[in-house]
Write a protein that binds this DNA or RNA. Structure first.
Length: 196
DNA sequence: CGTCCGATGAACT
DNA sequence: GTTCATCGGACGT
């Protein structure tokens, strides 16, 4: 494996830049002794207290959003629509609740385990191409909320990966945030072309 | 291909 | 009671 992303990678204020930089990095989980990993291919930035699309808009603190106020490099995992476990990377200094939603990965290690968790017979591009899909494939649930991602013993880790050049990235508005008014159109979604 | 809709829990009015 | 950073199945074109 390449080196782990250092804690300092996550601490800056530029959550949009960090979202872009996470493309091509490798995310790995170890759940019940099973290791799986994938290359990050889609991200969205959520910019702390000013962003109406963010759970932490206006510094809203609840049992769920408390994790977003942790230091950068922490996992923020929440249950979406009662069913799907969505994984974010907290960024920025402590008490500044920026986060990056990981929306899709390209499977790397242990595809058989991912197929089993998803109930698939064979790999298709539907295996890990959504924020609730790849977390299911990698066994990630809210039990892994609020853990560091940059230490050697962590159950979720993010490594340096392949370099993604600018012309391989599609930039678009974020999805599923129709309530966010003037923040709807922000070009804060990043997708690697030719994801599979 | 497209639209419709149910699942299911946290948080809000 | 309603909304919500989603998904997959049903059904029509």
């Amino acid at each position: 494996m390449p080196p782990l992303l250092d804690k300092s990678f996550y601490i800056g204020d530029d959550v949009v830049g960090i979202a872009r930089s996470l493309l091509g990095c490798i995310i790995q989980s170890r759940v019940n002794g099973i290791t799986t990993s994938g290359i990050i291919t889609e991200t969205e930035a959520y910019r702390g207290p000013e962003d109406k699309a963010s759970h932490a808009y206006n510094n809203r603190r609840t049992p769920r959003t408390n994790t977003m106020f942790e230091e950068g490099g922490t996992s923020y995992i929440y249950l979406c629509y009662g069913i799907h476990h969505l994984f974010n990377v907290v960024t920025g200094p402590r008490d500044i609740p920026h986060a990056v939603l990981i929306r899709a990965i390209r499977p790397l290690e242990n595809i058989p385990a991912m197929l089993e968790r998803r109930g698939f017979n064979r790999a298709t591009n539907s295996l890990t191409n959504g924020p609730g899909k790849w977390t299911q494939a990698m066994g990630i649930t809210t039990q892994l909320d609020n853990i560091p991602l940059y230490t050697t013993h962590s159950l979720i880790q993010i490594y340096e990966g392949i370099n993604i050049s600018k012309d391989e990235i599609i930039v678009s508005p974020r999805v599923g945030i129709d309530y966010a008014e003037e923040w709807i159109g922000k070009p804060w979604r990043f997708i690697v072309k030719n994801k599979v």
